[in-house]
Amino acid sequence: MHSLLARFAENGFWMAQYMERVENLARILDVNESFARDSAGEPAWLPIIQLYADDEHFFTHYREATAENVVQFYVINRTNPNSIVSSVWAARENARSLRHLISIEVWSQLNVFYKFVSGLRPRDLRLGELSHLCQELKEGCQLHTGIVEGTTFRDQGWTFYQLGKMIARADQTTRLLDMKYHRLLPNVADVGSPIDVSQWNALLRSVAGYHGYRRVRPSGMTPETVAEFILMNPEFPRSVVSCVRQIRHYHDRLNQDPNLAGVAFAPSGLDDLDNMLSVPIQQVTREGLHEYLDRIQINLQSLASAIAWSYFGGEADASAEGGSVSSTQSQG
């Protein structure tokens, strides 16, 4: 097809973002469950709420950030727009608008996946079941990714889907790092202790980066090298730098598309990200990792806005399809 309706570009962009968020959330919950088991009685669930800036919303529904409450809030609570059920719903609503453009397999899997997620009850979320459940959720997302990869026509719609996916993935990676880095660092006494190492370990595992990390650094594990790996390793597919490279690739694709002659989004935001990602990690941690991650998130956000202005005919606001589900995550 020669031209793509602006609305469909937006739908594809958001469908990808929602599914990427679901996968990341499943990873976070999974690894957090391991944390909670390891760290003797430490209330490990509050950081997730802080990660998504959901404090206010959460505490209007629940009194305490217990494992049970947090997991319910993020998996099956429909009033939480960041919950897995809300995100899968929103992804599916975007897919509904795109149905004539996506493959039947993509729609069908999303449909079955939503049916599974919306059928989850509190008893399915018991701590003993959680790891298994997260595995299933992750696999649902990976199945989606695989079907999209294997069946999607490589037109503009594909490009916008990939842009949404990579922006969301980079954003999620920075948030995960931010949460863990701050939770893990302050306890100076623990640095190098078995608990400390196991937690960094778990962080790497949550982003499927442990083995990759080991190939780069066969021995030792410090907070800095882990942060560097997660942010800046170009071979690691969930690193921020990998995502930004993908974003540039798809950006170039749009700029070279003859059907889009005269439309472009400025690459200055991408240049800024590249510059930030080439700063040595020692300098980053010295100047403050949290602020650094914040700046990356803001940059990603303005990239999304630039895409929306250039191609969707307005601000990206997640209202594409999915009604009131707003993108509180990416506005955080």
Binding site: S3, L4, R7, F160, L260, G262
Partner: peptide, 16 residues
């Protein structure tokens, strides 16, 4: 998704 301009019907695409 559609607008009228100059006596013709247009749809809003990513390329205008």
């Amino acid at each position: 998704d559609m607008v009228i301009d100059n006596g013709l019907v247009y749809m809003k695409t990513t390329a205008g």
